[in-house]
Design a protein around this nucleic acid. Structure first.
Lengths: 131, 131
DNA sequence: CCGCATCCTAAAGGATACTG
DNA sequence: CAGTATCCTTTAGGATGCGG
């Protein structure tokens, strides 16, 4: 039997520690940093967007994954889903305050990665040559 | 036949655009934000660490995944691997400059997520009740 | 227009045992 | 100590088709 490290709980707070196995931060972090999470959150930074817009914007995502990821992010309280008209259906997705606080550092990450692509590609070539 | 959106290239630079399918930023981002990437990078922020230390620190990671993730991060130029003694083998992992630039926003992300756990858990409960 | 259901494949990841 | 190799399970994700 395994007793997981203390971490969690919303009332008494030993403070969430993402390094501890069983910490509720872990699955949340995975939802955010999954293959599509980062991109979808980033795509919502400037404005609310509809499903089809997001589908075009996040190039390569399938409807299934877009739908699934949006639902997870909504469940975690990062994304707000607003059903507008009735016919034809009109749904807008936007970031919540929490979503914005979480997306901010992600934009920083994207910026650094995009700006470092030449350096990264060079590192990959070096590595591959010597292994 | 599909022609991927322009993006990449190390010389002529239409600037990497992570929203474009085929952009080299995509796999790099996945290496970083994979299940263990964030945690391993964060664990290396304060200091260099040896394999076994990381294994203890990042609770729950298998040796296999630790090894594999470290190799990927080394290949991307984010982590430096230094073999020190010969017997017993002594290997130290540390962040490169690039690794530090990339890890900085990740620390921000972790901080926000850890600090928002009560809010997130509450959102999850609300969502689950109404679905 | 906005998805969900189903089916299927590929990739990630864990357990265990073993090596320089 | 610092991994590799092998095997197996679990999950992510794509394709297609349907429904409100």
């Amino acid at each position: 039997m395994i007793v997981y490290s203390v971490c969690m709980s919303t009332e008494s707070l030993p403070a969430a520690d993402v390094f501890a196995r069983g910490c509720p931060s872990r699955p949340v972090l995975q939802n955010i940093t999954g293959r599509w999470g980062v991109l979808i959150l980033a795509a919502l930074v400037d404005d609310a967007h509809r499903f089809a817009e997001l589908h075009r914007r996040v190039d390569g995502v399938s409807e299934r994954m877009l739908s699934q990821t949006l639902r997870t992010l909504e469940r975690d309280g990062l994304v707000h889903r607003a059903v507008l008209g009735t016919v034809p259906p009109h749904v807008e997705y936007s970031l919540t305050d929490l979503g914005r606080r979480i997306t901010a550092p992600l934009l920083g990450l994207i910026e650094v990665v995009e700006g470092s692509i030449p350096e990264i590609v060079a590192a990959q070539r070096d590595y591959d040559r010597s292994h």
